[in-house]
Design a protein around this nucleic acid. Structure first.
Length: 375
RNA sequence: GGGGAGUUUCCAGAGUGGCUAAAUGGGGCAGACUGUAAAUCUGUUGGCGACGCCUUCGGUGGUUCGAAUCCAUCACUCCCCA
């Protein structure tokens, strides 16, 4: 995997780059739609590719491992073949599920024992088998197995959690180095910087991941309940310490505002469920602000969802989309998700253009005002 | 013509003397959602000069300290038998 910086501004840390993978080149900054169970919920692969124009999507180790299971994925020839997506895929390691499924899992030095949320069966993830699973999935970018430290963790917990993540990282790379890709394309492994909201821990974590020769580095354990200012502060501390010539991936972030602020702090890659989940729940992100399409005020608003939208679904009227969402029609969730994803893609693509032509900071400050509005 | 059941807050539907402005569900209105156990969850839903007052449980008139709940009567709806 190769990462080439096209430009990095002097007056901000924002960067534009080109990330070459076994399934094509990714222009950064990039937003990666989340496709947990091998599908970006509600959107056809064709629309992800041709309408939203996503460059890379996510899959999830935990969910795919439980269902359909590795046997099926392997027989399919990997996730790319299974879901007809021939561009890059990044898989999360299950580290986030260590956090989000907190009450049905048990951590130990060895790994995390899980109870399936589907059938209650018991499973164990270790740094080793999580690499094996991601080899079978065939992700272009595999994530290290970590503990996503819960928001609100005290310093001692955060330190212990970080140290566990660090020991697991060594085992991840060891397994990574002794295994081979299964489907003929190259796979990368990204370490994850933890350290919660503690600057000192974040610095230690950043130094530690750099001891591994990786194709890119991720920042995890943020947007888990801390204040946004703290998230930005932590992000900045980490990006300052990471190698300049490698992509930085801020996991799970975020709102359009979060994304611009983080790009400004040197982040290159993002993923978040917001455009799809919030879309399903009736929230639209637009260049003029956010819309709760279920609100009565849109009942008779027959203007397009988004005048400036880049997706073909943006031609539908607000009144129609409101009707669909309120009627609980499947198409409502689909249109809203597709619009939101297209908007996120527009946002990072435009950010990239502005970085390259040198007007990112100005554009960003103008955008923030609009993005924070509720329509 | 005979016998029976019913009429409750937007809808459905509990409640059968005070703890009832009235369960629950739906609908409505609003909010939340950040590496997806989420097409989910939460709040709210008679009025007001609001820690109190007013109006409301088909109409009217009673009984009672007190009624959506008991009695009388009227109206309407539904079911069964002719």
């Amino acid at each position: 995997m190769n990462f080439e910086l096209v430009t990095a501004l002097d007056n901000s840390r924002a960067r534009a780059g080109l990330l070459t993978t076994g399934h094509g080149i990714i222009e950064t900054p990039v937003f990666m739609p989340v496709g947990t169970a091998g599908t970006v919920k509600g959107i056809h692969t064709r629309d992800i590719k041709d309408d939203i124009k996503a460059q890379i999507i996510l899959g999830n180790t935990y969910h795919l491992y439980l269902r359909p299971g590795m046997d099926v994925i392997e027989k399919a020839g990997g996730l790319h073949k299974f879901n007809l997506w021939d561009k890059p895929i990044l898989t999360d390691s299950g580290g986030y599920q260590v956090f989000s499924l907190g009450d049905i899992r048990k951590l130990s030095e060895e790994g995390a024992k899980f109870q399936s949320h589907i059938d209650g069966s018991f499973h164990q993830f270790t740094p080793e088998n999580v690499i094996d699973i991601q080899r079978i999935i065939g992700a272009d970018i595999m994530m290290a197995f970590d503990e996503c430290t819960p928001g609100g963790a005290d310093y001692n917990y955060a330190k212990k959690s970080l140290e566990l993540t660090q020991r697991w990282l060594g085992r991840c790379f060891s397994q990574f180095n002794k295994t081979e890709p299964k489907y003929g394309h190259y796979q990368s492994l990204f370490p994850i910087v933890q350290g919660s909201v503690y600057a000192g821990l974040r610095k230690i974590a950043t130094e530690h991941v750099k001891t591994f020769e990786a194709d890119g580095y991720a920042i995890g354990g943020l947007s888990v309940g801390e204040k946004e200012e703290v998230m930005y502060e932590m992000t900045e501390i980490v990006t300052e310490g990471l190698p300049v010539n490698k992509p930085r991936y801020l996991m799970g972030v975020g709102t359009p505002v979060n994304i611009l602020e983080s790009i400004d702090r040197g982040v290159d890659m993002f993923d978040c469920v917001m455009p799809t989940r919030n879309g399903r729940n009736g929230m639209l992100f637009t260049s003029e602000g956010t819309i709760n399409i279920r609100n009565k005020k849109w009942e008779n608003d027959h203007s397009p969802i988004d005048e400036n939208g880049s997706s073909y679904v943006d031609g539908y009227s607000k009144a129609y989309l409101r009707h669909l969402v309120i009627s609980n029609e499947m198409l409502g969730a689909q249109i809203a998700s597709q619009h939101n994803l297209a908007f996120y893609m527009w946002l990072v693509k435009t950010a990239r253009r502005k970085i390259i032509d040198g007007s990112f900071s100005l554009w960003k400050s103008e955008m923030l005002v609009k993005l924070k509005q509720r329509l």
